[in-house]
Nucleic acid binder design. Structure first.
Lengths: 387, 387
DNA sequence: GGACAGTTTGCAATCGATTGCAATAGGACT
DNA sequence: AGTCCTATTGCAATCGATTGCAAACTGTCC
């Protein structure tokens, strides 16, 4: 067995030392070792240990210095156009990408954004909530378009200190936090430390960082007004108002009742978590006792609405004739359950893009205000009565 | 305006040059600026430009060299225990994290895994597919536990060449590809380049990389056998068999029919995409013509099943008495639609963990075989007849 | 040809953590 | 005290891309 050391990364060298990778001198051709099979069981698939080209290699091939190659790849106009073209062509021919870690270290920019899904510490809200994941996809695609990578993690397992883990250690240039939980102190720490970040949720007006979200209050108002227009007279509210977004939806619920001159009955507001299961159980345990005068439910999410609807249908309640139902989110399945679910649609496309845009502006040092996106009521079978 | 140069990053220095950051002696705030302030009007507004500590700072505070501090933080036993303890305490007191980009550059390891959601190029399969996102959450949490960060992107916007973008440029140490699309050539390129990666999907036996997924064939067989046991005699299959996973499910469907001595009717297999919408339309357009002798549907996903069910119910077909239905995936809403949906449950917890485990072994250079996870049939209202 | 101005390029330093190897320190033994 | 062995520590180089500033080159004018 023979070894060579030059032009290979420490990883490969250590594999050689460990006997994992072995090669024979005569198998080398050019800068790749070609042989992938051996006749004497003394070789490995050397192709997988091929040297990765560095900028220095590209520079040498182009006959310029590394600094010129670097500037040419970045299309810097101080470099002559012909030189730029030449370097870029050689790089493209080799599918060359600069070493991202070297670049980050030198520029102090990782071009990476950390997205943290913030769960309520006490409940089992799940990443399978389709709404969460819808917006996540938009963010991922938009960041890619803007030349950024996206790190994803959840608050269940994330290191306690987002500032040092993501920002100080240069893993990310900024953070997007999805959700507000119950006023997680880690968000406050980010704000105090001056880390660039934005939050998807509901603004209450005194944050020192941008909060972007739907007009939850208006959405709830539209939903409850619609129920009242359908002739409903007693509307329950399912959702945990200890969460800011849900609290805003409750305010909108109250607005609609107030305008109709109806009382707000505390017994008709149930804190449920974000799962269909909890809503199913709470509807059985609590709301059935309000029948038959209860004739509508506004649920703070579609998952909650579907759990409640299941309980009602099993109980023989006719939806929407005896009890009408509206959810919030327009998850993919809402149109395809039976009866199809009326819901408030959040504009996740616009929301995800605005989150990214706002964060990139924060990273540039700009002051970015909080923002609210309009919502839309989708009326489907669950709330459309034959009057 | 006054300037100082020492101990600040190029980013801050450039902000000073650009006049973005301005300073005045009277803006000094406490201990941040003290070490850098002097009595000759050379100050900085340190609160908002606070210097991030480097390992060199920790070493100085501990009275050791940088190399000792580095080894001590990593708990390297060549360093005396008292020294290790001291350095670790100082680092913890300052919430110090090493600069990840510096470490990656030196070690040639990013400790980051890229997760790519591979969509079929032609269809509009959406990231809101709850099954996809379920497994994604497990992967995120498991990678975090193993000390890795997770990059997320979708194949819609990802650079064409995953090898150079993620691997060669050192953004990621390995890749997890979720889904197989229709034999995306980018996956082949990864395999040829010897990049460590694993795929979630169905193995067909001749891959050169590990494919991890559920036992699709067995799952489908269980579902169809269950339908036959419920007295069904003509079962349709909804799902796009050009996808390997769905093809395996079709094989299991065929297995069950064969064992019952029933013919496989090609007209009863419809290629639908992964959305409830396409299934809804195809059920209306094609399957209604098979009524009333068609008495069951096996759908290759729960979303497809729910679209088909909606069409059937609207058409006045009683589910399951006239036509029974089973899906695949056990998405969160399956138990809460009406009737609740029978389905084949994939073990996303075990799957996500196995993907991570397999990939980390690949990164270590180990040969890792493909693997299949057992599935489970959940019988709910949509397929349980009163016989 | 020389001077000047503008353009282009390259040298060398930098970023911050890690690690090979040599130097140093400490303890045990004679 | 001197020698030997082991443990501990620090120096200096490295990783690969970027960038400030000086040097070199090119073109124009006198």
């Amino acid at each position: 067995m023979h070894t060579i050391a030059e032009n290979f990364s420490p990883n490969f060298s250590s594999q050689l030392s460990a006997g994992v990778a072995s090669i024979a001198a005569r198998d080398l051709i050019g800068h790749y070792a070609v042989s992938t099979a051996n006749k004497t069981n003394r070789y490995v698939v050397v192709k997988e240990c091929a040297k990765v080209l560095t900028l220095a290699d590209i520079a040498r091939l182009a006959g310029v210095s590394e600094s010129t190659a670097s500037r040419a790849l970045r299309d810097n106009p101080v470099i002559n156009a012909a030189t730029r073209e030449k370097v870029q062509q050689i790089a493209a021919a080799h599918q060359f990408k600069v070493n991202a870690t070297a670049r980050s270290l030198r520029t102090q920019k990782s071009h990476t954004i950390a997205v943290i899904i913030l769960f309520d510490a006490k409940t089992q809200q799940s990443i399978t909530d389709p709404f969460l994941l819808d917006i996540l996809g938009v963010i991922a695609d938009e960041l890619t378009r803007q030349g950024y990578d996206m790190l994803l993690s959840t608050s269940k397992t994330t290191d306690k200190d987002w500032r040092s883990y993501y920002f100080d250690s240069k893993r990310a240039d900024g953070l997007i936090v999805i959700g507000q939980g119950e006023h997680d102190e880690r968000v406050q720490q980010l704000a105090e430390a001056g880390v660039p970040f934005v939050v998807w949720g509901a603004a209450n007006g005194d944050e020192t960082f941008p909060v972007i979200g739907s007009d939850n209050r208006q959405g709830a108002r539209l939903a409850v007004e619609h129920l009242l227009h359908q002739g409903c007279q007693r509307v329950a509210f399912l959702g945990d108002i200890r969460h800011t977004e849900i609290e805003m939806r409750y305010l909108g619920y109250q607005d609609a009742l107030a305008q109709a001159g109806l009382p707000v009955e505390p017994a008709l507001q149930l804190n449920t978590d974000f799962t269909a299961q909890d809503a199913y159980l709470k509807t059985q345990q609590v709301l059935f006792q309000q029948l038959p005068t209860l004739d509508a439910i506004f649920a703070a999410s579609d998952a909650i609405a579907m759990g409640a609807m299941k309980a009602l249908l099993e109980h023989g309640v006719q939806v929407p004739q005896q009890l009408a139902l509206v959810g919030f989110d327009d998850i993919a399945m809402s149109a395809y359950c039976t009866p199809s679910l009326s819901t408030v649609k959040q504009d996740t496309q616009a929301g995800g893009k605005l989150l990214v845009s706002a964060l990139l502006q924060r990273i540039q040092g700009a002051a970015v205000p909080s923002a609210q996106l309009p919502v839309r009521l989708l009326c489907r079978q669950s709330s459309l009565r034959q009057l």
